[in-house]
Amino acid sequence: MSEVCFRTVQSDEDVALLDEALRCLSADLGDDHIAGHDALTTALRGACPSAHGIVALKGAALCGAVLFSPVFSTVRGAPGLYVSDLWVSDEARGMGLGPRLLASAARRAGQLWGANWLTLAVYHTSPRSRRFYERLGFKADTGASVMKLGAEGLGQLMRDAG
């Protein structure tokens, strides 16, 4: 693969590229895509960003992206990063771009908040993705279940618990 440029998402142009990549990922997975340019801009900017992004470009062509956030584990006693989204274009698959994006995110998280471990979730309907992560040394956490509380439930919790 000729030279690929990894760029931390900061400009509006980069946010648009990240949004494009995440829309492609959502389409690949059959997911709804609700977060658009405005939501990403809000998450990526400000005094305490809730997310960080890196885009990979080959020339002007978007070929990959990663979106990640800080997380802290009392079990590990250290900060880490949660990779919520990793996308590589069909044209760039098999060329080592996925591991390079993950490494770029880990380096950036290490610089920003001292992250020294990484976590992510893999859909059960995506065995190819699971095999990719296993080849990199990821292990399934069989002792935990991912549980989510949506906006409506979170609002109800805050109202009920004062």
Score class of each variant (00 low, 15 high):
Ser2Leu: 14
Cys5Val: 15
Thr8Lys: 13
Gln10Ala: 11
Gln10Gly: 05
Ser11Asn: 10
Asp12Lys: 08
Val15Glu: 02
Val15Asp: 06
Val15Cys: 04
Leu17Asp: 08
Asp19Ile: 03
Asp19Met: 07
Asp19Trp: 05
Glu20Trp: 04
Ala21Lys: 06
Leu25Met: 10
Ala27Arg: 14
Asp28Ser: 04
Asp28Gln: 09
Leu29Trp: 07
Leu29Arg: 15
Gly30Val: 14
Gly30His: 11
Asp32Val: 13
Asp32Gly: 06
His33Met: 10
Ile34Met: 00
Ala35Gly: 09
Ala35Arg: 10
His37Cys: 11
His37Phe: 14
Asp38Val: 15
Asp38Trp: 10
Asp38Lys: 13
Ala39Gly: 10
Ala39Lys: 14
Thr41Met: 04
Thr41Ile: 08
Thr42Ser: 14
Thr42Pro: 03
Ala43Val: 03
Leu44Arg: 03
Arg45Thr: 13
Gly46Pro: 04
Gly46Met: 01
Ala47Thr: 12
Ala47Cys: 04
Pro49Thr: 05
Ser50Asn: 01
Gly53Gln: 09
Gly53Ile: 13
Ile54Met: 01
Ile54Arg: 01
Val55Leu: 04
Leu57Glu: 12
Gly59Leu: 09
Ala60Pro: 07
Ala61Asn: 11
Gly64Ala: 10
Ala65Gln: 01
Leu67Trp: 03
Ser69Pro: 12
Val71Lys: 14
Val71Asp: 12
Phe72Lys: 12
Thr74Met: 15
Val75Gln: 13
Gly77Met: 14
Gly77Ala: 14
Leu81Lys: 03
Val83Ile: 14
Leu86Tyr: 04
Trp87Ile: 07
Val88Asn: 02
Val88Pro: 00
Ser89Val: 08
Ser89Ala: 07
Ser89Glu: 00
Asp90Thr: 05
Asp90Ile: 00
Glu91Lys: 13
Ala92Phe: 14
Met95Cys: 15
Gly96Ile: 13
Gly96Asp: 05
Leu97Asn: 06
Leu97Pro: 09
Leu101Cys: 00
Leu101Trp: 02
Leu102Pro: 08
Leu102Asn: 07
Ala103Glu: 12
Ser104Pro: 02
Ala105Met: 01
Ala105Thr: 01
Ala106Glu: 11
Arg107Ile: 14
Arg108Trp: 05
Ala109Pro: 07
Ala115Pro: 02
Ala115Phe: 02
Asn116Arg: 06
Asn116Ala: 03
Trp117Pro: 03
Ala121Asp: 14
Tyr123Asn: 11
Thr125Gln: 02
Pro127Met: 04
Ser129Met: 03
Leu136Gln: 01
Gly137Met: 08
Ala140Ser: 03
Thr142Gln: 11
Gly143Ala: 02
Ala144Ile: 05
Val146Tyr: 07
Met147Asp: 00
Lys148Thr: 13
Lys148Ala: 06
Lys148Tyr: 00
Ala151Leu: 09
Gly153Thr: 07
Gly153Asn: 03
Leu154Phe: 11
Gln156Asn: 05
Gln156Gly: 02
Leu157Asn: 05
Arg159Pro: 00
Arg159Asp: 03
Ala161His: 06
